[in-house]
């Protein structure tokens, strides 16, 4: 009996440094934000929440953030599937492509943002190419499709890496067996490969989704008139100095994110 208490005491003391730090640096700040967001002096304690959520601007911002995140997640999934199917066969230079895919993760987001802005600019290389073909420039920077492209560029590697790490353990024999049975390529893809990749894709895309939802540095620079939640929070609190309102928005953002997370996990558990 005594031994067990001693053992659990040791476990606890080993665990505690990490938990204490996370408590101080994460849960306590969260608590501070929640306290700040409540208007104790006012008649209505949830004044800032009601103000934010009932304004047309508030809903617009939340909608915009979700739209960007969903759009980018969807594109990432498409891009990742195609890349995985091609790179799985290890064509010439596949390590080179793997390096490329890692680049957006290893390089600071702001540098990427600057490069993307220059590249997709009205007189950037893409547009010069488009103009030499069609004579009509395309507007990419500071538009919603543009932002979705930027987000995809930045965050698709997470989907790709997680999915490909799962598919690598996949047995090649299953595919061969299907071929022997007489399935054509499309059938193999549709009935064998995709179902097998699905859990990996879901797990990978959640990472991409979360990052898109919380993206800050990129929309701050490339957003133009479109300012998702993170940027709105920053502008309201750090630039306009209305910390209470900013805190309320931050709490709303955290809640929405948690909501998405929970529903996502549910879907994933079901597909498993």
């Amino acid at each position: 009996m005594k031994n067990i208490t001693k053992q659990s005491l040791v476990t606890f003391s080993l665990l505690s440094p990490g938990l204490v730090v996370i408590g101080c640096l994460f849960f306590y700040p969260l608590f501070v934000i929640i306290r700040n967001s409540l208007a104790f002096g006012e008649e209505q304690v949830f004044y800032h929440y009601i103000e934010f959520l009932s304004s047309s601007n508030g809903l617009y911002v939340i909608g915009l953030t979700c739209l960007l995140a969903f759009g980018a997640t969807f594109l990432s999934i498409c891009l990742s599937i195609v890349l995985i199917l091609i790179l799985r066969r290890k064509p010439l230079g596949h390590t080179f492509f793997k390096t490329l895919i890692l680049a957006p993760i290893a390089i600071p987001g702001l540098i990427c943002a600057l490069g993307l802005l220059l590249f997709w600019d009205k007189n950037g290389w893409i547009n010069l190419l488009v103009q030499s073909l069609t004579n009509h420039p395309i507007q990419v920077n500071y538009t919603i499709p543009g932002l979705i492209i930027f987000y995809t560029w930045l965050f698709f590697p997470y989907t790709f890496l997680i999915t490909s790490s799962q598919i690598e353990s996949l047995e090649k024999s299953i595919e061969e067996a299907a071929e022997v049975v007489g399935a054509n390529r499309w059938q193999i893809l549709r009935y064998i490969l995709l179902p097998l990749v699905k859990p990996g894709l879901l797990a990978g895309s959640i990472m991409t989704f979360m990052l898109c939802f919380g993206a800050f540095s990129v929309p701050l620079i490339c957003g133009g008139d479109y300012r998702p939640l993170s940027v709105t929070i920053y502008t309201t609190s750090a630039i306009f100095n209305r910390w209470d309102e900013g805190s309320a928005m931050a709490v709303v953002m955290a809640l929405v994110q948690i909501l998405f997370l929970i529903s996502y996990i549910r879907i994933m558990r079901r597909t498993r």
Binding site: L15, G18, L19, I22, L25, F26, Y28, P29, L30, F31, V32, I33, N36, M210, F213, G214, F216, L229, S230, I233, Y234, S237, W243, G246, S247, A250, V251, M253, A254, Q257, I258, L261
Partner: peptide
């Protein structure tokens, strides 16, 4: 326990960054 430890990476940093700067 894992979920608690991973939580800071799952919630957008801007949300608790406000609190951290406050403290």
């Amino acid at each position: 326990l894992y979920s608690i430890i991973l939580l800071p990476r799952m919630i957008p940093p801007i949300t608790y960054a406000l609190g951290i700067s406050n403290i």
